[in-house]
Amino acid sequence: MEELVDWGFVWDILPLLLRATLVTIEATLIGFGIAASLGLLLAIGRMSRQPWIAWPIAGFVEFIRSTPLLVQLFFMFFVLPKFGLVMPAFLTGILGLGLHYSSYCAEVYRAGLENVPRGQWEAALALNLSLPRTYWDIVIPQAIPPIIPALGNYLVSLFKETPLLSAIAVLELMQTAKILGSEYFRYLEPITIVGLLFLGLSLLAAAAIRRVEHWLTTRKG
């Protein structure tokens, strides 16, 4: 009977998988960069007093949040070229990830902004600070620290959803594992390694986020 785990095979494929991990991490960081920046803009836009800004943005955010990332990825992958935007799959992938997670980040930012006490807005108004200045100096600095753990969790979620990029043939971890599996007819080793890598990295990230949370709550003292 064939042995359960072919350790020689494991050693052979490990370098390949580790290299693919770099692609995954790259996709995660760039994708989250897009998500975090776009999310803040969406959140501020949603708080606008003008309904013709706030409502479309709210609709857009709900729309993206409520539909599967995979479908959005397929959509972007097939539709964008029709508009003349031909990009490598990697770029489409991180744009899709960034857009999808910007809607989650927008909700997080919104909660953070709404949690800033009314009195802060009123004091700023009484001191005649302009609205942009109020946002930049008074509201945002108070809104962000409490929500960093939540943002961190979405960073980890984004990281764990990068395997979806394999559906549009991006050569990240999952795709590499699938290719190895079909090439050598052994799926156990590649996919288990992928699973362990994800598990390990996300546990590390979760621990880091807890550290940041602890640092934030004890700093104010």
């Binding site: 764990k160 959803e161 395997p163 979806l164 394999s166 999952m174 594992a177 699938k178 599996g181 799926y187 156990l188 996919i191 288990t192 992928v194 699973g195 994800f198 598990l199 996300s202 546990l203 979760a206």
Partner: peptide, 19 residues
């Protein structure tokens, strides 16, 4: 809880399907 939250649904799906 840690294992299933620490890995993504797709990885779990593929693992169960292929392995």
């Amino acid at each position: 809880i840690e294992v299933f939250r620490g890995t993504s649904a797709l990885v779990q799906l593929f693992w169960l399907f292929f392995v």
